[in-house]
């Protein structure tokens, strides 16, 4: 299964299990979404459960909140994460604050699904990675899977979690990421990172921790392979849930290696890497052997022609690994 099929499988499974789950968004019905993530759901569940909406992200998210208040579990799809901003107020001022502002009386349980990230020749309106803009808002959970197994398990966990979840789907690896996905029901716990490559530091043999998620995880792995040829081992942590982030797994790894690189597509300044480095400084300062490093998108709008130069691909991660190891 690829990532698209795994997400589709999770939606289908949960819609069968829980009649409150309703998929809505632009083109999610008959055509099955522009990336075909919801393909077949309309045929199986019909107009009441899979709803093509007018072209209005504010309308999709605003009505989804009303549906959730009344007891449904909406799964709005925002066609590209770049299109989420017309509905940003509904997420930031309403969805995120619903439980808190009502003294715990109301909640608006939903999972907002949206494709994220670059590398698909999408230009500035089809490529951005706005995760930090949501992590910064109290009340939201933010998830980004990097493989089909996690995508299905994390989506099922997100749908059953009591809080609203932003589910970012790395579109560059929608079809490229393939793997075995069990049939039937299973969940991957929210808030737990996964160490996808282990490393041990030894005297005279430094190791580097790399924190990554989504499509950039594969760039980190590719860079780590090259680094190994140069004699540097890397421990790679796939964060999977960006918020609440698994700070314990991160801290344990950094305490072990003393060196850390954060990789993300979003612009460097105030990106999630900034928060991760701050958390590491607060928790692991005395274990650090080198300054934490961010390899990120540049502080420019997302480019069309030069997107591969913009992205923090393996060729940019590798020198950072070597420099951090030699510091």
């Amino acid at each position: 299964m690829n990532l698209v099929q795994a997400i589709n499988d999770a939606l289908k499974l949960e819609m069968k299990r829980d009649p409150r789950v309703v998929v809505l968004g632009e083109d999610v019905g008959r055509v099955g979404g522009v990336f075909r993530v919801t393909q077949g759901l309309w045929d199986e569940f019909g107009d009441d459960r899979v709803v093509d909406t007018p072209l209005s992200e504010g309308g999709i998210l605003g009505t989804a909140i009303g549906m959730a208040l009344y007891g449904l579990v909406p799964v709005p799809e925002i066609q590209f994460a770049d299109f989420i901003f017309p509905g940003y107020d509904q997420i930031v001022s309403e969805l995120a604050k619903m439980r808190w502002r009502s003294g715990g009386e109301y909640s608006a349980k939903m999972v907002v699904r949206t494709p994220v990230g670059g590398g698909i020749r999408g230009g500035l309106y089809h490529s951005q990675s706005p995760e930090s803009l949501f992590i910064h808002v109290a009340g939201l959970k933010v998830v980004c899977p990097a493989n089909p197994y996690d995508a299905k398990g994390l989506l099922l966990a997100s749908l059953r979690d009591p809080d609203p979840v932003l589910f970012f789907e790395p579109k560059r690896i929608y079809r490229a990421s393939r793997g075995d996905v069990p049939e039937g029901d299973y969940t991957v716990e929210l808030g737990k990172a996964k160490i996808v490559r282990e490393a041990e530091a030894a005297p005279g043999k430094p190791a580097v921790t790399i924190l990554a998620w989504g499509a950039m995880l594969y760039e980190a792995v590719a860079a780590a392979e090259k680094a190994l040829e140069l004699g540097v081992e890397c421990e790679i942590v796939d964060l999977r849930t960006l918020w609440p982030v698994d700070v314990e797994t991160i801290a344990a790894s950094v305490e072990k290696t003393g060196r850390v690189i954060v990789v993300h597509e979003a612009p460097k300044t105030c990106g999630f890497g900034a928060e991760l480095v701050a958390l590491i400084n607060e928790r692991c300062f005395l274990s650090l052997e080198a300054p934490p490093v961010r390899v990120a998108g540049f502080d420019t709008p997302f480019p069309y022609t030069l997107e591969m130069d913009y992205l923090p691909l393996a060729h940019r991660i590798l020198p950072a690994i070597v420099e951090t190891a030699r510091y």
Binding site: G58, G59, G62, T63, I65, G66, M67, L69, Y70, Q90
Partner: peptide, 8 residues
């Protein structure tokens, strides 16, 4: 729009 969603 929230009222509309609840009505829906």
């Amino acid at each position: 729009p929230q009222a509309v969603g609840a009505a829906w």
